[in-house]
Design a protein around this nucleic acid. Structure first.
Lengths: 203, 203
DNA sequence: AATAATTATGAACGATGTTCAAAATAATGA
DNA sequence: TCATTATTTTGAACATCGTTCATAATTATT
C-alpha cells in the first residue's frame, strides 16, 4: 500500500524483464508467472500490470530483447568469405538456442494461439536477421534479383532453424550433439552448392 | 456419483482424445483443459484421471494419434520417382501443418520443459517418418552407407520442418502462402542437387 | 439378498492471470 | 508548514486451472 519510488518506471520494467529471463533460464517455461516475477523484484503481482499490459505483453518485450541479444551474437562472426560466414551464423544461431533454450523457444512458441499479429518491434529484428543472410547470398550471386535473394535467404535459414528445433527437442534420435553440427554443415554445403550450380545438367 | 458403464474404458479414452482434438482444432491450444474435455464427453473432470495419468499423458497419446494420421497422409503419396516423392512428402507435411495447426504445434511444443523423455510410442513413429525419407534418398544414391542416409534424411527433413514452422508462425514476412511452396521446392531442389553432385568441382 | 468390486463424482487444495478500490507515499501550491 | 492533489503500490477478490480423494452410485459376484 505505498509508493516507494525506489526505481523509475523504466528501471522497473528492466528489472522485471531480467527477472523473467532468469526464471526462464533457470527453471523453464512453466515456472514463469506474474507472481513469480513480481516476487523476484520485490513487488506484488498487481504492480506488474502497471508496467505491462499483461503477461503476453511482457513476453513480447522479452522476445524483443532475446532477438537483439541473438543479433549481437551473430555480429560477433568475423568470417569474410560468404559461405564460411553463413556457416558461422548457423553455428551461432544453434549455440544460442542451446545456451538459452527456454528464451529461444518462447521466441517461436509464444503468440501462436490466434490471429494476434507479431508486433513491429519483433518483425523488424527478424528482418534484420534475414538481412544478414541476404548479404552473404548476394555476395555469392551478385546479379541475383532482390526478391529471389529474400526468398533464398528465408529458405536456407528455415533449414537452419529446423535443425535447431528438432535437435533441441530431441526429435532426431541420432547420437545427439555433434549430429546437429554435421547436419548444419551438410545443409549449408549442399544447399549452396546446388543453388550455385546451374550449368552441369538439370538433375 | 455413479457408474454408468455407457462405454468401455477404451471407448472413453477414444472419446476423450477425439474431444481434445476437436477443441484444439476449433478453439486452439489455450482452450484445451481437463474440465473442457471432460464436459465435452459428458463426464466430470475427475473422471479423466481414471483414463489418463494426467493432462501431459493425454497430450502424449494425442500426439501419437496425430503422428499416425500424419503418416497416413504421407502414405497417400504415389510418386515413384525419388525426388518427386520427397517433394510430395514435403507438400503433404506442410499441408497437414496448415490444416491442423494446433495439433501439429503440440507435436513439437509439448514436453519441452525438462528432461522428460519422449515416449517410445512417439519416437517410433518419428523414426518411421524418417524411414520414408531415407528410402527416397537410398534410391538416389544406392551405394550410400546407412549412417549417412539417416543423417541426410534428418537434415533434409529438418529443413522442411523449419519452413513449416516459420510459415505457420508467420515469421517469414514475405507475401504469405505460396512462398512456403516455393521455398519447399527450392530447398529440396538445391539440397538434392548439391548432395548428388560430387564431381563438377568443389564450390 | 448380501457382499464385493468397480466407476463416477464433486468438493477441496493450491496455483494461475487479471482487476480494482483503497491505502500509502510523493509532489505541489498555499 | 500544512492541505491538497497526483502517483504508485498493494492485497483482496474472481474465475479458472490441474489434481487428488473420500464417498456415493452402480454393476458383478457369491
Amino acid at each position: 500500500m505505498a509508493r516507494r519510488n525506489d526505481h523509475s518506471r523504466d528501471e522497473l520494467r528492466e528489472m522485471a524483464l531480467s527477472a523473467a529471463e532468469r526464471v526462464l533460464q533457470q527453471e523453464g517455461f512453466k515456472a514463469l508467472s506474474a507472481r513469480r516475477v513480481a516476487a523476484d523484484i520485490g513487488y506484488s503481482a498487481g504492480s506488474l500490470y502497471t508496467l505491462f499490459k499483461n503477461l503476453d505483453d511482457l513476453c513480447w518485450q522479452l522476445n524483443a530483447r532475446t532477438l537483439t541479444q541473438l543479433l549481437a551474437e551473430l555480429d560477433r562472426v568475423e568470417q569474410t568469405d560468404a559461405k564460411s560466414c553463413l556457416l558461422a551464423y548457423g553455428h551461432a544461431y544453434m549455440a544460442f538456442a542451446h545456451d538459452h533454450p527456454a528464451r529461444w523457444a518462447l521466441l517461436f512458441e509464444h503468440g501462436g494461439s490466434r490471429d494476434m499479429p507479431t508486433p513491429a518491434s519483433l518483425s523488424e529484428r527478424i528482418d534484420s536477421l534475414f538481412a544478414r543472410v541476404e548479404v552473404c547470398l548476394q555476395q555469392l550471386k551478385p546479379e541475383m534479383p532482390a526478391a529471389e535473394c529474400a526468398l533464398t535467404a528465408r529458405t536456407l535459414w528455415s533449414g537452419v532453424h529446423g535443425i535447431a528445433v528438432l535437435a533441441l527437442r530431441q526429435k532426431l534420435f541420432l547420437d545427439q550433439a555433434q549430429s546437429a553440427d554435421k547436419m548444419l554443415q551438410q545443409l549449408v554445403d549442399h544447399f549452396i552448392k546446388g543453388w550455385l550450380i546451374e550449368e552441369c545438367r538439370d538433375a
